[in-house]
Design a binder for these strands. Structure first.
Lengths: 232, 232, 232, 232
DNA sequence: AATGAATGAGTCTTCATTCAT
DNA sequence: TATGAATGAAGACTCATTCAT
C-alpha cells in the first residue's frame, strides 16, 4: 500500500523515459505517457503537475543516476586520480549512449541553467519549469556529480598521478567540457569516414591520450614506465 | 532592383534570428516573423517552404558565418598553429555569445547529424527538415569549419608550436569538443561562485592553459615554474 | 447515463447533417459543427478523427437509413414484386428530397467507389477518407440496399408480375440507374416549363409507366390501347 | 496574331481539363493551371475572371461537345429513331469515359440547376459561379442536347421503331435518366464480381435490351422468342 | 498582353490540462 | 486515488486573387 503510490509514480516516469527516447519530448503526448504507463491521463496529473514537471522529475532522476556513475568510479578501489578520470571518459559517453534521454535531459538542464543565470534570458524559461519542485531540487543538487569529479582531480594530485600545479575545479570542469563536447561531436563524425580521417573508434584512444597528456604533464618525464604502460 | 528579391529573403531571415533569439524556435510564430520582417505571412512561405526550412536556412547562414571565424583566424598573419587554436578558444565562445541563435542552430545541427547517422533515430527527424534544400546543402558543407581547424593543427605541427606526434584530425576534433563543452558548461558555472571555486572569468585562462599544455606537450618541461605559476 | 456517450456522437452528426444541408460540405467549418452541436471543437475530434471521418460516418448512417427504405418496401405485405419496385420509384426520390444530405452522401460514395475501383484514380481519394473506419465499413455494406432490390425483382418474377426472362441483378441495377438519373434530372427540368413540355409532375407518372412497361413486357400486348392512352 | 488570344485561352482550358482530370477541381491550383499552360498566373486571370469562371467555361465546352455527340447520332443516315437512341446508350458512357472531366462538369451543372431552381438552395451556389458569363450562356443552351434527344424519339415514333403512344419529352428524359444512372452505377459494380452477378460487360447488353423493350413495346409481341432468348 | 511578387483571409487540427464523478 | 470526457487556446499553412511594372 504505501509503496503503491510510489509505484505509479515510477510507472509514469518509466513510460516517459521510454517515449521521450523514441519520439522526443515535444512529440510525446501526455496521453501516450498515461497509456504506456497503463493508467489514466488524469492520474498522470495527480503525480506530476504538468508535462514540464514530469520532465524535471525525469531530469532529477537522470542527475541521480549520473551521480551514481561518478560515485562508482570514485569508490572503486585501487585507482589513482588519473585512472578515475580516465574511466570517466569511458563511462560518461557510455552512459549517454545507454541512457540517451537521461543524458539529453542533463544537457537540457545545463542550457536551462545558462538562461536561468542570465536575467535577460531567464524569462525564456517556461514558468511551469520554474515552478516545478523537481526543478528547485535540481538547483540544489546539479553540481554534485561535478563535486565528485573535482575530488577525483584532488585525489590525483595527492597520489601524484596528476600534475600538482593544476587547480582541481578548473581542471575538472575542463575535463567535463571535453567529455560533453566529445559526446556531441560523435554524431557528425560517424559515417563520414570518407572525407575525414577520424572515426568514433579511432578518436576515442586519441582523445583519451590527449586528455591524459594534459593532466600528467611533466610527470610522464619523471616516471613514465610505471604509470603509462597500463593505460595504453 | 536586382537586390530587392534577395532583400525580402534577408529581411525574413533577420526577423527570424531576432525572434528565435528572444523567444526561441518553438515560441516564435511564423506570423510574428512576417510581421517583424514587415511583410505578409504568405510571402514568408513564398521564400521559405515552412518553419523548418526557414530554420535550416538560418543554420546554413550560421555555418557560413562560423566558417568565416575560422577563416579569419587561419588567414591572420604572424600566427603559429598554436596561437591560431588559442585564438579559436577565445573566438568561438565569443561568437556563441554574440550570435546565440546561430551558435544554437549549429549545435542543433550536430544533434540532427547524430540522429541522421543512425538509421534507428533518423525517423525522429522532422520530414520537413529532411526535405529542406538548405538541410541538403548543410550536409555538404557542415564540416568545412572543422577542415580549417584541422589545417591549423597541421600548421602548428609544421611550425613546431604543436607536438609533432599528434594526429591533426583527432587533435582538432578533441579541441573542438573541449570548446563546445566549455561553452555549454559556462552557463551552470555562472553565478555559482559560493559553492564552487570556479567562475567564468577564472576558468577561461585555466582552460586555455590546459589546452595549450595538451598541445605543446614537452615544451612545458623546459621552464615549468615560470610559466604556470602565474596563471593559476 | 449509458446513452450519454452516444448522445454526443449523435449530436455532432445531427449538427453536421444540418450544416452540410444548408451550407454544403466544404463551406461547413468544424467549428460550426461543434457550435451547432453545443459542444467544444475539441470534442468533435474526440468522436470523429477529422472532417472526412465525420462525413463517412454520415454516409454510413445514410446507407443504413436508405437500406431501411428498401427493407420497409420489401417487408410490406400484400405487394407483388412489380408493386414493390414501383413503390421504390416513389420512395427513393422522396427520400432524396427529405434527406438531401444523406442522399447526396450516397451518390458521393458511388463516385468514390468508381475512383476506388480504378487503380489510376484511387490516389485521388483523400487519404483521410480511406483511413476512416466508417469508410471501411461502408465498403462492406454499401451494396446491401441493392441486394434487397434484386430480391424484389426475383420476387416479381416468382409472382408473375415481372417478365420471367429478366435477369434479376441486371434488371434491378438498371432500375436503380433509372431512379438515380431520374432524381438527378429533376433539377434541370424544374421551372423550365416554358421551353420543354415536361415538368416534375407530369414526368413522374410517365416515368413510372415506362418502367412498368419495361418490366411487365407482355402484359401491354393484351390491351395496349386502353391502358396507355390515359397516362400520356 | 488575331488568333493568339484565342490560343492562350484554349491553352488554359486544356491545362484545366488535364489537371482537373488528374487531381480534381479543388485540388487543382490556379498556379498549376498557369504553369501547365505555360503562361503566368496573372494571365490566367486576364482570360478567366476566376476559378469558377474557368470551370464554367470548361462546362460550356463540355456541353458543346456533348451536343456534338447527339448531333452526330441524329445526322447519321440510315438509322431509325430506336437505333439512334440505342447508339446514344453506347455513345454517352463512352463519352463519359473518354472525357471524364467534361462529363463530370455536365453532371455538376445538373446539380447546380437543381439548386438554382430552388429559391431556398440557390444561395448555396457560389456568387462567382452565378456571375460567370459562361454560366449565363449555359442557362440558355444546356437543354440543347436533350432537344436533339427528343427529336430522336419523335423520329422513332414517325418511323415506327418506337411505340406511338409514348410522349417524346417524357420518354427521352427517362432514357437520359437511365443513361446517367447507368454511368454512375458503373463504378460500384466494377470489381465486385464475387458478390454480385453483374459486371460492366454483362450489364451493358442487358441494359440496352431493357431500354429497347421499353421503347418498342408492341414489337416484341410480334416475335418475342427470337429476340429475347439470345440476350439474357 | 504578360509577369510574378505580394497579400491575407480562412481552417483544420493538436494537445496540455481540468473536473465532475 | 482514479477515470476519461470535455475544453479551448494556439498556429502552421494554403491559395485565390491582385497589381505594380
Amino acid at each position: 500500500m504505501p509503496s503503491e503510490k510510489t509505484n505509479k509514480e515510477k510507472l509514469i516516469l518509466d513510460a516517459a523515459v521510454s517515449l521521450f527516447t523514441s519520439k522526443g519530448f515535444v512529440a510525446t503526448r501526455m496521453e501516450d505517457v498515461a497509456k504506456t504507463a497503463g493508467i489514466s491521463k488524469g492520474l498522470t496529473y495527480f503525480y506530476y503537475k504538468n508535462k514540464e514537471d514530469l520532465f524535471m522529475a525525469l531530469t532529477k532522476k537522470a542527475f541521480d543516476q549520473f551521480k551514481d556513475e561518478f560515485r562508482d568510479v570514485y569508490r572503486s578501489k585501487g585507482k589513482n586520480g588519473l585512472e578515475m578520470i580516465s574511466e570517466l571518459v569511458v563511462r560518461i559517453p557510455a552512459f549517454a549512449k545507454e541512457n540517451q534521454v537521461y543524458y539529453d535531459s542533463i544537457l537540457n538542464f545545463l542550457d536551462l541553467m545558462k538562461k536561468y543565470n542570465n536575467p535577460e534570458t531567464r524569462e525564456q524559461i517556461d514558468p511551469k519549469t520554474l515552478a516545478s519542485d523537481h526543478f528547485q531540487k535540481l538547483l540544489e543538487i546539479h553540481h554534485e556529480p561535478a563535486k565528485l569529479g573535482v575530488m577525483m582531480i584532488s585525489q590525483g594530485i595527492k597520489d601524484g598521478s596528476i600534475r600538482p600545479e593544476l587547480q582541481p575545479e578548473i581542471t575538472f570542469y575542463t575535463i567535463w567540457s571535453m567529455i560533453i563536447g566529445y559526446e556531441k561531436m560523435m554524431g557528425p563524425i560517424d559515417y563520414e569516414g570518407k572525407e575525414i580521417k577520424i572515426t568514433p573508434s579511432n578518436w576515442q584512444p586519441g582523445f583519451l591520450k590527449l586528455l591524459q597528456d594534459m593532466l600528467k604533464g611533466t610527470i610522464q618525464a619523471v616516471k613514465p614506465s610505471t604509470v603509462q604502460g597500463s593505460l595504453f
